[in-house]
Amino acid sequence: MTLTRRHTLGLLGATAATGLAAPAIAQNTPLKVGALRFTSHSPSFIALEKGLFADAGLDVELVFFEAAQPMALAIASGDVDYAMTAISGGLINLARKGAIRVIGGGLSEEEGIDGQKILVSDAAMQAGIDAPSKLDGKRWGVTQAGSSFHYMGSKIAQAEGISLEFTPLQKVPAVIGALKSGQIDGWSIVPHIAKPLAGSGAVHIVGDVADYLPGYQVTTLFTSAANAENRSQTEAFLGAFGQGVTDYNSTMIDQSGGQDGVDAMVDLIHKYVYTDRERERAAPSIINGTMRINEGAALNLASVRDQLEWFQSENLIDASITIEDLVDTTYVETVG
């Protein structure tokens, strides 16, 4: 505990730098934060493990989910207070009913940083499909209609002037299975899943999502409409989360703490991610999965607007929904 305490003290300056005043909320406000066991959720793990949430007066309990979709429902039902996930049609429809608001950004596609990969099955590769442009008329794996995979595939198809057959498979493992067995031809996924798959030879990487969707706001932070009204609590959460982001980016990407810093961070993340493997085998996956998370939970509003318009053009959500229904822009810095 002493070590954690020292570290926290060292980060106090960073808190001031984000421009958030010391939150005026009661100590030990209980809060539930939804998370997936992905490295991209590391800021929450760091903020909890290093006492950043506690210092902000929040008594955080992490609630783990198997998929992003139930997380949005849990926010709407009030079982979870804050969470981070990709924007989906379901999330927007819940926002329209006044149940949830997007308050910040998580992962973004950024030039120069390893982002989501476009994959094709081995069978498709054998048939000569070695670029996204050659996927015309082929099956593209999605979890569900209106998922981020659907959005990415649709945008890639639009840019290449091809048409894809979107194949819903409900769950990520089902998509992976279908891609490996050649039942579907193409898919896009975060690098820490894409690379090991490609390494096994069962699938092949043929492009980057970032080439088609520069600045794509992959995941967003969101909360219930009621929590969004509670400024002091939400600011306290974002402040602690932001410190976690800074710590993660500087340690894992900028290597400010050297190899020791990376090792310590991997130890911390390994408590939550790849827990079924021993550390030696988990470490490469955790390091491979490193992606830069938006500093200060900044939000690429242009990307969110593009996603919103795409959902509307696909008739997946009501045409009357506006960006104001979805996003509360008063908390974080926005781009675009």
């Binding site: 569900q144 209609a145 209106g146 057959e165 979107f166 819903p168 409900q170």
Partner: peptide, 21 residues
């Protein structure tokens, strides 16, 4: 219709569920 169906009443219900529509 959970796996790989683009049209069908089941696919329609599943899609509506995932969209929370």
């Amino acid at each position: 219709e959970m796996l790989g169906a683009q049209a069908g009443i089941g696919a329609y219900i599943l899609e509506a569920g995932s969209l929370y529509d």
